[in-house]
Design a protein around this nucleic acid. Structure first.
Length: 875
RNA sequence: GCGGACGUGGCGAAAUCGGUAGACGCAGCAGACUUAAAAUCUGCCUCUCUCUGGGAGUACGGGUUCGAGUCCCGUCGUCCGCACCA
């Protein structure tokens, strides 16, 4: 009787309905079992899910289903990162309200995710654009404000003078606004900031505790925070000071090279530079030039180092009578250190470039280890490595480190104008987090500007500050700022007319605490419920893209600390385990006019070993290009909906887990999908073939003396089970997949070879094999597993059934086949019993024909027996 | 420029500790079944030689070791992050 092919479309819908009806993935906070929180980075509702989502959410779902089977109370929620610019762009282009656009996208994408059969607790779904979510965010903002974690400050922004709007760095292309094409200006605006730098040191040192994070991500964060230890040094003016201050303070990490100082360089925004420009039009013009310089990476890279001699001079701290000229330089940043540096051209590339250009002296003070002080001279480059200090008075002979210490000690105790001349300082590259956005579709910053009371937070009982529904998007600028009535409000303090803050928050704020909200999204009065948030967090396993390695993860770590400081949560680190998955990539195709062609329109043949692509429609030859990240611009995208409709969700899920290690990119190929689908059908066929023999049996139902064939199968089943457990625990899904293929191949062989009717130990063993197989594929291909489970007449749904137990006695073998090497090359194999001693094994090895031949009667120099592994005879 | 990761068949890869290199999948080749195709099944599938056997082989060149894909040094290449942070 022919077995009908597995109909994924029908079966998947059926099981999704059954799970939904029984509400099997709902999670209760009161459940007493041990908790496990698995979370994938929530999506931006762009319109449709893409293959990257399929991969990300498949991985998370495998973990969730596996942990559930292992007896954990699993929290596996989903939500929407729903504020952001694309919704506003859609409003401008298509005249559709951002809310309507966003919620329609959410509806589409929710249905797509449901078609994947993910084991999500949809009751906890949140959208960050919902007032139910952002009112809590506003509450926390005001709490942060009261704790001093929020402040306002003038900051430089990219300003588009045509659209009258602030642009994100990504919206500035070649120095011009992406929409208007206007040359972007740097403007100073009052902007809201989170004081993330309060936690610089903690965010840095706590990275060491995150041992279940990829080293790569931790390193990236470490570099981003950028701690450096140095010395602030005050140089006394020799010329009159333009500001009245008696000194200029610089920051350096190389105080050991002070004797090589040949200039000071100030930022264009340094107070001394500003003051000196008064009455010095040329310097004023130079400052102006510095301001016009773009902030983009490209602009910085090409910009040449330039300076302007202010004519001012300062005294060298150690060399009596020596003076140092003061420049303003375009490469010195005002917001790092003190906005001023000293230059030692002999030992720093940048200072070297500057000194060469302006013909300043270059005095070497660090001697390389193998150089002689009397003959040493620099070549055409600075010497930046370690060495011994010379040309430096009291530092001569010291190492670089010792000299740093000596300089610090001396300057700390030298008084200049009632303060020490030097002070040790730790600096961080990390800046405070600027969250102001002059946008409509974001969380309104809940502050009110009152002429009399200043900036006042909106009282808790007046939250949320709702976005107005009737904003207009047909003019440039911030819709909130130009709304006729929205911003006008009474001051909460004095009740006089005041105005609302019209900035909204960076959408990274929304995603910095959503994982906490999931723990009790039903709390109407507070952002979090302490009992829930403290027991669920930290997230046991967080899974997402490497592109969030720095910002999202760092901001979330900051938020956890800020929420702790304001009593909204009780822990520092939000994510105990982090996994960054690779991208989904695909070949690219182009027609003879150079236009990109989408994979769905292409057929591939192999002609004499060469792959040839043709247009499906008319057979036109298509050029096969490089493999790249799926992107709309290159059209190398595959639509998850089509894949699921054609092959089923299980096939797509299985493919995503196969072959490539999850942290690497996976190449999506049509033939690979076909292979995955073949496997789905193969399991279905096997189950149906075996069903008549085993459907009544539950468990191994062993006879007293099972046959060798039955025992071999049972051993393989339990070895596979143990290996798959291990693989899933370490998210090595590709290895688990390979083990499962092996098991299915073995079952296939047994069904073909064994005589089920006459070997009465076989039905039990085969039955057990299928039970285990279906349980271990359940996290990966849940619908197929359920359908097979029910075909075999098993009780209940697999989604809620317990993981099978490994029988440890079955995973150790009584006999082992060990490779035998002679002088490190494999020459034979030797089958020994597990109990055999080393000396017995050695004796057996010497009896082997090949070994005798090589030794020719002589005794071996050595025999190395590595237990359970290998034998090496050294002849 | 600085920092980091990686380099294994035609392709994706596997090889927890230094112990049989290439499991598993994809592609390909040959065959069976079929009127035929699809599906399915069987076998082959690193290179090479004087082929019932041997030799070489994990980017390249050295080293440590009884034994190296794995450890160390150097070279080349690819990818990623940061990029005037003093």
């Amino acid at each position: 009787m022919a077995i009908e092919r597995y109909n994924a479309r029908v079966a998947e819908r059926k099981w999704q309905d059954i799970w939904a009806e029984a509400d099997v993935f709902a999670t209760k906070n009161e459940d007493p079992r041990p908790k496990y929180y698995v979370l994938e980075m929530f999506p931006y509702p762009s319109g449709r899910i893409h293959m990257g989502h399929v991969r990300n959410y498949t991985m998370g779902d495998v973990v969730a289903r596996y942990k559930r089977a292992r007896g954990f109370n699993v929290l596996h929620p989903m939500g929407w990162d729903a504020f952001g610019l694309p919704a506003e762009n859609a409003a401008i282009q298509n005249k559709v309200h951002p809310a309507k656009w966003t919620y329609e996208n959410i509806a589409t994408m929710r249905a797509q995710l449901k078609s994947m059969g993910l084991s999500l607790d949809w009751a906890r779904e949140i959208a960050t654009c919902s007032p139910n979510y952002y009112k809590h965010q506003q509450k926390m903002f005001t709490d942060f404000f009261k704790k001093g974690l929020v402040y306002r400050r003038k900051s430089k922004v990219n300003w588009d003078p045509i659209d009258n709007t602030v642009l994100a760095n990504e919206q500035v292309i070649d120095g011009r606004g992406w929409r208007s094409g206007a040359i972007v200006e740097q403007r100073e605006l009052e902007q809201w900031n989170f004081r993330i730098t309060d936690y610089s040191e903690d965010l840095l040192t706590s990275l060491d505790t995150l041992d279940r994070w990829p080293d790569k991500v931790r390193l990236m964060q470490r570099n981003w925070i950028g701690r450096s230890e140095g010395l602030r040094v005050r140089f006394e003016f020799e010329t009159p000071s333009p500001t009245g201050e008696k000194t200029i303070e610089i920051f350096t990490t190389r105080p050991d090279t002070l004797f090589g100082a040949s200039f000071l360089a100030l930022s264009a925004d340094h107070p001394v530079a500003i003051a000196a420009a008064n009455g010095n039009p040329a310097l004023g013009a130079f400052r102006e030039k510095c301001h016009q310089m773009g902030t983009s990476a490209a602009a910085l890279e090409t910009a040449e180092k330039e300076g302007f001699d202010t004519g001012l001079t300062v005294k060298h701290p150690f060399i009596a009578g020596a003076t140092v000229p003061v420049y303003v330089a375009n490469f010195v940043l005002m917001d790092y250190g003190t906005g001023a540096i000293f230059g030692c051209p002999a030992h720093d590339q940048r200072d070297w470039d500057f000194a060469t250009k302006y013909k300043l002296s270059i005095i070497p003070v660090v001697l390389p280890p193998d150089a002689a002080a009397t003959t040493y001279s620099l070549g055409t480059a600075p010497y930046v490595d370690d060495g011994t200090i010379f040309n430096s008075d009291f530092l001569n002979g010291l190492t670089v480190d010792a000299a740093k210490e000596a300089v610090a000690k001396r300057l700390e105790t030298t008084m200049v104008d009632v303060a020490p001349q030097g002070a040790r300082q730790v600096n961080y590259r990390l800046r405070d987090w600027l969250i102001s956005r002059q946008r409509y579709w974001g969380c309104p910053i809940p502050m009110i500007h009152c002429d009399d009371c200043g900036v006042v937070p909106v009282p808790a009982d007046q939250l949320p500050v709702l976005l107005p529904d009737d904003a207009t998007f047909d003019a440039p600028g911030n819709p909130l700022a130009r709304h006729p009535t929205w911003k006008h409000v009474a001051c909460p303090n004095c009740n006089r007319p005041a105005t609302r803050e019209t900035d909204t928050m960076d959408t990274f704020v929304d995603s910095s605490w959503y994982f906490a909200r999931f723990t009790d999204p039903w709390n109407e009065t507070d952002p979090t419920t302490r009992s829930a948030v403290d027991s669920w967090l930290p997230v046991n396993q967080y899974i997402g893209g490497i592109e969030h390695a720095i910002l999202h993860l760092l901001y979330s770590r900051f938020f956890a600390r800020a929420m702790k400081a304001t009593g909204h949560a009780g822990l520092d680190e939000p994510f105990a385990g982090l996994f960054t998955q690779g991208m989904v990539v695909h070949e690219t195709y182009r027609d003879n006019t150079g236009q990109w062609v989408t994979p769905a329109d292409v057929v591939i043949d192999e002609i004499e070993g060469t792959r040839v692509a043709r247009l499906k429609a008319d057979g036109t030859k298509i050029e096969i290009g490089s493999i790249e990240k799926m992107s709309k611009s290159k059209k190398n995208v595959v639509d998850p909906d089509e894949i699921i409709a054609n092959w089923g969700a299980d096939t797509a899920r299985w493919f995503m887990l196969s072959d490539s290690p999850p942290d690497r990119d996976v190449i999506w190929t049509e033939s690979g999908v076909e292979g995955s689908h073949r496997f789905v059908q193969r399991i279905w066929r096997l189950v149906n073939e075996a069903a008549p023999f085993i459907s009544g049996i539950s468990g191994p139902a062993l006879v007293e003396t099972p046959t060798a064939a039955a025992m071999t199968l049972r051993k393989q089943v339990h070895k596979t089970l143990a290996a798959v457990e291990d693989d899933i625990e370490r998210l090595a899904f590709n290895r688990a997949v390979a083990r499962i293929y092996e098991l299915v191949n073995a079952i296939f062989k047994i069904l073909a070879d064994a005589d089920m009717a006459s070997d009465d130990s076989m039905p039990g063993a085969v039955s057990e094999a299928f039970d285990v197989l279906l349980q271990i594929i359940q996290p990966m291909m849940p619908h197929l597993a359920e359908e097979c489970w029910s075909t075999l007449g098993r009780d209940g749904v697999l989604a809620t059934s317990a993981w099978p137990l490994v029988d440890r006695s079955l995973i150790v073998d009584d006999t082992l086949t060990l490779p035998v090497q002679i002088n490190g090359k494999k020459r034979a194999e030797l089958t020994v019993s597990r109990q055999m001693s080393d000396s017995e094994i050695q004796a057996a090895v010497l009896e082997l024909e090949v070994v005798k031949q090589v030794l020719e009667g002589r005794p071996p120099k050595k025999i190395i027996v590595v237990p359970q592994r290998i034998i090496n005879v050294v002849a």
